[in-house]
Amino acid sequence: MNTAPDTATDTAPGSDLLRGSLRADAWGTAVFGVVMLAGGGWLSGPLGLPAGWFTPIGIAMLGGAAALGLIAGYPRIPPRPAALAVAGNGVSGAAMLLLVATGALPLTGLGVAFVLVGAAWVTGFAALQLTGLRRSRARA
């Protein structure tokens, strides 16, 4: 039995959390993107989001999901793209909170809840990914 690490695919401790959170974030982001693209016509009224926002947001979410999936797929996750994922999630969460706090959009109660859940989602993944990134750097 060979117990030597495979240097081509061996990952540092902490990488499992980083990789897993990037993958889960990619899948969730993809689902959100599809919902935005498919549901824009009928979600606008109940949420109070402008109808014209759904298509660009949906496309951006699908692009983001692809990027997250690519980052997670590296045998060794590069720190810079992982840090960009953390930053992107953090900025997205802050932007969503700002939209709600400023009342910049005519959100309904359901719309406020939708945006706050989105903010919690991306902020939660930013925290998980940052923790995984720090652990993998500390033990690499």
Rank of each mutant, 00 (worst) to 15 (best):
A120E: 06
P106R: 14
A126E: 04
M1W: 15
A127P: 01
N89V: 05
P50N: 08
V112R: 06
W121E: 01
A51W: 06
R76F: 02
M61G: 03
P50G: 06
P106Y: 12
L130R: 11
G111M: 02
R137E: 11
V112I: 11
P56K: 12
S92P: 01
L18C: 04
M36S: 11
T9C: 09
T102P: 07
S92A: 15
L49D: 00
G64P: 01
A4T: 14
W42K: 08
T7E: 15
L37C: 03
G90E: 10
G58F: 05
L105M: 14
L98K: 02
G69M: 13
V112C: 08
P79K: 06
A119L: 01
T55A: 15
A60E: 06
G64S: 10
T131V: 10
W53T: 07
T102N: 02
G39P: 03
T123Q: 06
G118D: 03
D25R: 07
A95D: 04
G103I: 05
S21V: 05
A119Y: 00
G111N: 08
L37P: 00
G33F: 09
A113W: 08
A8S: 08
L128W: 09
L133C: 10
M96E: 03
P75V: 06
G40A: 10
A87R: 13
L110Q: 05
G124T: 00
A85H: 09
P81I: 07
V112H: 05
N2M: 11
T3K: 15
R76G: 02
V112A: 04
G69I: 12
F114V: 00
A4N: 15
G88F: 05
A120W: 04
L130E: 13
T102I: 09
F54T: 00
A65P: 06
S15F: 11
V112F: 05
V112K: 07
G39L: 06
A4G: 11
D16P: 01
M96L: 13
A82K: 06
A38V: 12
T7M: 15
V115A: 10
G73C: 12
D6Y: 11
L133N: 03
L116Q: 00
L62T: 00
M1I: 09
R76A: 14
M1D: 13
V34F: 14
V112N: 01
V115K: 01
T11Q: 15
A119K: 00
L105C: 01
R23P: 09
P13V: 01
A38G: 08
G88R: 05
G118F: 02
F32V: 04
W42Q: 08
G48Y: 03
A30Y: 11
G41R: 06
L68A: 14
G64R: 05
R23W: 14
